[in-house]
């Protein structure tokens, strides 16, 4: 078989190009550590995500000093959680699955991009160096509302990031003279301890208590208020812990009147 000299040169050039591509891609995988989405995760029953310890409550968890795990559910036509919040300078591993059809989880303008297949859990580990806000889109057709499927990822500056959760249980109504209680539960989902103050404002009063909450723990602060000091009527209250706030109204009623009514 006779092959023209130019054609031989071309052929050799083509082979060099091809081998060169394979070498650079291998270098990307091995040298730079760009891992592919793979089969490292166990399969999952798509119809039973509600009972799964990771996906029943889609959330971000801290697993190391600067390491976080995000459990994300992509379903028609939303992402949960939304927005996803992680601190800057962190390494985040996303675990993404779907209870219904095939979706994708793609952070716009980055190379964070994976298919989300029901029954499979996609994982990707990503480093977020700088703070910023990104859009999240589904880029696989998933049904008639596909174009509305979007979410957000907020990379919060490291020093502003926390995983504090505030919940308040307060009396709605007390009789004059009785004590009203406002119970404030503060959960610190970070690993390191949180030093902060719980502040209650009610009427003209401001009560404050310093708390230290160990990593992964919940502290309860109970404020007791003498309703006589407030007087009869509606009193708005606000509980503040760092940037979190909860508020409500306490009604102080006249004991005697109520008795008369009955």
């Amino acid at each position: 078989m006779n092959v023209h000299t130019y054609e031989k040169v071309w052929l050799i050039g083509a082979m060099v190009l091809i081998v060169g591509f394979i070498v650079t891609i291998t270098y990307g995988s091995v040298g730079l550590g760009i891992a592919m989405v793979d089969d490292s995760e166990e399969t999952i029953e798509p119809s039973e995500l509600d009972e799964d310890e990771r996906f029943a409550d889609p959330r971000v968890e801290q697993v190391g000093e600067n390491e976080y795990e995000a459990y994300v559910v992509a379903q028609t036509f939303i992402f949960q959680p939304d927005p996803i919040e992680v601190p800057s300078g962190s390494e985040v591993t996303f675990y993404v699955t779907s209870p219904d059809v095939i979706h994708s989880f793609s952070i716009v303008g980055t190379n964070v991009n994976t298919m989300v297949i029901p029954g499979e859990v996609a994982t990707m580990t990503v480093e977020f160096d700088e703070a910023g806000e990104y859009g999240v889109v589904c880029n696989e057709y998933c049904g008639s509302g596909h174009h509305t499927m979007e979410g957000e990822l907020h990379v919060v500056p490291d020093e502003e990031f926390d995983m504090t959760e505030l919940s308040v249980e307060a009396d709605d109504e007390v009789e004059t003279g009785d004590e009203a209680t406002i119970e404030v539960e503060v959960e610190n989902r970070m690993l390191e301890a949180l030093e902060t103050a719980v502040t209650l404002e009610i009427g003209d009063e401001t009560l404050e208590e310093d708390v230290t909450i160990d990593g992964g723990e919940t502290e309860t602060t109970t404020f007791t208020i003498d309703s006589a000091d407030l007087g009869e009527g509606d009193h708005d209250w606000t509980v503040t812990v760092d940037d979190y706030e909860d508020s409500g109204t306490l009604t102080v009623t006249d004991e005697l009147e109520e008795d008369d009514d009955e």
Binding site: W10, I22, I25, D38, M115, E120
Partner: peptide, 26 residues
């Protein structure tokens, strides 16, 4: 980018694909 398929299998497909460039370049 499919979860559930090992990286090795993807690598095989990648090398085969690259060699498919050959007939097109020819």
């Amino acid at each position: 980018l499919d979860p559930g398929i090992a990286e090795g299998f993807k690598f095989i497909a990648m090398t085969n694909t690259m060699f498919l460039l050959l007939p097109s370049l020819l």
